[in-house]
Simulated scan of single mutants.
Amino acid sequence: MIRGMRGAITIEKDEPQIIWDETVKLVQAIVAENNVQPDDIASIIISTTPDITSAFPARSVRMLEGWEYVPVMCMHEMNVADALPLCVRVMIHVETTLSQRDITHVYLNDAVKLRPDLITKNV
């Protein structure tokens, strides 16, 4: 079964190295929490709020050893008033036997505000 594993992280400022480092931190936390390997991943969609423009976060995922064949795409989120700024969101589509209830979604930094109902433990 293909399931979605979600996560989000906020960054301190729109700088390429910060974007790449925080995106990797988030993706690695999601896969670690759910015991996922790159070969289990069908695809990854990464979105950013419109205030992130200095780098493609997908680049950092593609640069991970063993991840070069994982399809990754970036896009911007809708520009909604009062949305959480400087936020990177990730949706990883994974082949898994986990039920929806057993998937651990990961929210880091100020992104914990997005889905406090899914925060069950600190990553």
Rank of each mutant, 00 (worst) to 15 (best):
N35P: 08
A81D: 14
D21T: 07
I11S: 02
N79M: 14
D21Q: 14
C87R: 15
V112H: 10
S47D: 09
D102M: 13
V24W: 09
A8F: 05
I18L: 08
L84G: 08
L84Y: 12
V31R: 00
V24N: 08
V106P: 05
V88N: 11
V36K: 01
P85T: 15
H76W: 15
V80P: 12
I19V: 12
A111L: 13
D40R: 00
V72M: 04
I18K: 07
R6V: 03
V94N: 06
S60D: 05
D110Q: 09
L114W: 06
T48C: 09
I19H: 09
R3T: 04
R59Y: 07
T97N: 15
P57V: 11
G66D: 01
L118Q: 08
T23C: 01
T96G: 04
V27P: 00
K13V: 15
V61R: 00
F56G: 10
T23W: 00
V27L: 00
R59Q: 13
T23E: 01
L64F: 08
T53R: 14
I41T: 13
N34T: 06
R6I: 02
P50I: 12
V72P: 05
P16G: 07
S43Y: 13
A42V: 07
C74R: 10
V88M: 15
D14K: 01
H105P: 13
D117A: 08
E15I: 04
N35Q: 10
D110L: 14
F56R: 09
T104I: 02
